[in-house]
Write a protein that binds this DNA or RNA. Structure first.
Lengths: 244, 244
DNA sequence: CGCAGTCTTGAATTGTGTCAATGTTTGTGG
DNA sequence: CCACAAACATTGACACAATTCAAGACTGCG
């Protein structure tokens, strides 16, 4: 069977039936390759599709009237992105590739048909959207109520938790393809202060860096300081209607 | 026909068929009355249902390890709340009534059946979830990248835009049932600084206050300063599958 | 009427931003 | 493979926005 971004993702949560796989494959359109830095969708531009990340990292961001930028979320393999186009035909955020990426098109009319043909998939997608909402809430809480070092720690823990989903074994270090400006725009800090905060964490011995590789030395301390909760685990599926 | 929270809400976006109305009514359980201050769902507690707000205001919030609180979102009549229980059986946030409220239970197993019976409703609920996500992104941007007076201005504009959805005519003033502590917890500021910021806006003449009533005097100035976008308008429904 | 919860204000402190200069990496073309 | 430019990281000095602490004035409710 053909490899599919959405099948891989939904298969993490459910055992898909053949009919469900077929329906998903039918909804997906050709893949698109992006170079690091490429913009997949621009804020305000027309958009009639979602995308499934097959490979690589992206982020979504918005621009402010005052010239700043807020990075809203990082996206990894398996994520369903550009979902604002389900509600409006204009994209609410810019999607930018951080590393080289492959994404798969999922036209929204096809998704409509998938919702009708496979209600269990529809329900799971709804649950995933609800989980995304909680992820945004977590970030809001972090940025609204924590200091710079807790924000940064939370980001590192979050990235690591997410990478552990894909990498089977235990991960305690990873390559961080983000500039300090990116990190600042994600955390609501300036790049200068991000730098100071990183160096302080390094000096206190809870993290180590070699080039762009980061190693989490004292995960327990970071978790204790931030109250970080890993939300990347299971999604409850008991309420879903039976598969067709 | 019996009055229903969800029918009223979805009816804003679609002309529902009789079969769809029937199915929604079948999914909804009895209503629940809350007094201002009551907690509908506590963070971490079991939850097997969503709720539709029929009347009143609520907010969702989380607690931090350090003792603080972040208010994530305010909810008004027609909103679908507690959606994190679609993904997990433990609630991710606390739902608290701000004013006296009436909410309607929507058990998630019933929602599963609704998804199967009425795919067009499923699709619309998905679009609404996507719009909720964008609303969270807006708040993240406001808190992450704006100063205190822009944050406060955005909150006021947002509340007013939301009240205009229900109130037919033009609204330029409204009762604000929030304490300054609440506002601070929503905006990532202390209550003291909220007070200073309100008084500064008042002094500069862009807002006026009488008791708990707020009047927006110079809406254009507030919009210009914040880049506020009203997202409470239409939701695109062209991609939805046909009704059954 | 009195009390508890709010709102308001001032003064001192702290965290983060701004500005500016220098060092370090990365990638590109010769 | 080297030279160079551009992007990125690092650091210091200073400015400023928001917090903290504290005290007093409202307001609404039992």
């Amino acid at each position: 069977m053909q490899l599919s971004g959405l099948i891989a993702r939904l298969g993490r949560h459910l055992d898909l039936t053949d009919a469900e796989r077929e329906a998903i494959l039918h909804a997906e359109r050709g893949e698109r390759r992006l170079r690091a830095g490429d913009v997949l969708v621009a804020e305000g531009g027309e958009s009639h599709a979602l995308y499934v990340v097959r490979q690589g990292w992206l982020h979504s961001s918005t621009k402010l009237v005052t010239g700043g930028r807020q990075i809203l979320r990082f996206h990894y393999a398996g994520d369903l992105i550009g979902t604002s186009s389900m509600a409006w035909s204009q994209a609410a955020a810019t999607l930018t590739a951080i590393s080289d990426c492959i994404v798969i098109d999922l036209p929204k009319t096809e998704l409509g048909l998938l919702f009708r043909a496979q209600p269990r998939i529809a329900g799971l997608l709804y649950a995933i959207a609800a989980a995304e909402n909680v992820a945004m809430s977590d970030r809001l809480t972090t940025i609204g109520r924590m200091g710079a070092s807790e924000r940064l720690s939370t980001l590192l823990l979050d990235i690591m938790a997410r990478l552990r989903v894909t990498a089977g074994g235990i991960v305690d270090s990873f390559d961080l393809p983000l500039t300090q400006t990116d990190i600042g725009d994600a955390l609501g800090l300036t790049k200068v202060h991000v730098n100071r905060t990183i160096r302080a964490l390094e000096k206190s011995g809870v993290i180590e860096r070699t080039g762009r590789r980061v190693r989490i030395v004292d995960e327990a301390a970071l978790v204790a300081a931030t109250g970080f909760t890993d939300r990347y685990g299971e999604i409850e599926t008991a309420w879903l209607p039976p598969a067709i």
